[in-house]
């Protein structure tokens, strides 16, 4: 009995911690997606000339480029899902 109680206590604490973490991740899931979309828009705006979109003066893009590897990769990844935006939205909103 003396061994069981601390074991149970640890399990409950562990469960609560995980629940807390899950709740936190759930709470920001949609915002995270929104940020990803904004970062994609930003990438397209700055580096649009690489995919044929009107873009700022070349030197603005070139000056920012060394710091934008993440956006560049994200932008290229988005190309794969660009033809199915509705299914992507449904997956974000957990529909279906």
């Amino acid at each position: 009995m003396t061994e069981f109680l601390p074991f149970l206590k640890n399990k409950v604490i562990g469960f609560l911690k995980i629940s807390d973490q899950v709740a936190r991740y759930k709470a920001v899931e949609t915002i995270e997606h929104e940020v990803e979309e904004l970062e994609n828009i930003f990438g397209v705006l700055v580096l649009g000339s690489f995919i044929g979109v009107p873009s700022p003066p070349m030197q603005i893009s070139l000056d920012l480029m060394p710091f934008m590897e993440k956006e560049l990769i994200l932008m290229l990844e988005k190309v794969d899902t660009a033809n199915a935006p509705i299914s992507q939205l449904f997956s974000v909103l957990n529909i279906g």
Partner: peptide, 28 residues
């Protein structure tokens, strides 16, 4: 002048991204 028009827009968008990203970091 032309570059500033673009930069002002990019600045506003980047600040919005950072604000949201900070919100996520705070919660997580």
């Amino acid at each position: 002048s032309l570059s500033l028009v673009w930069i002002d827009h990019l600045l506003a968008l980047r600040r919005e991204i950072i604000r949201k990203r900070e919100l996520i970091t705070k919660v997580k």
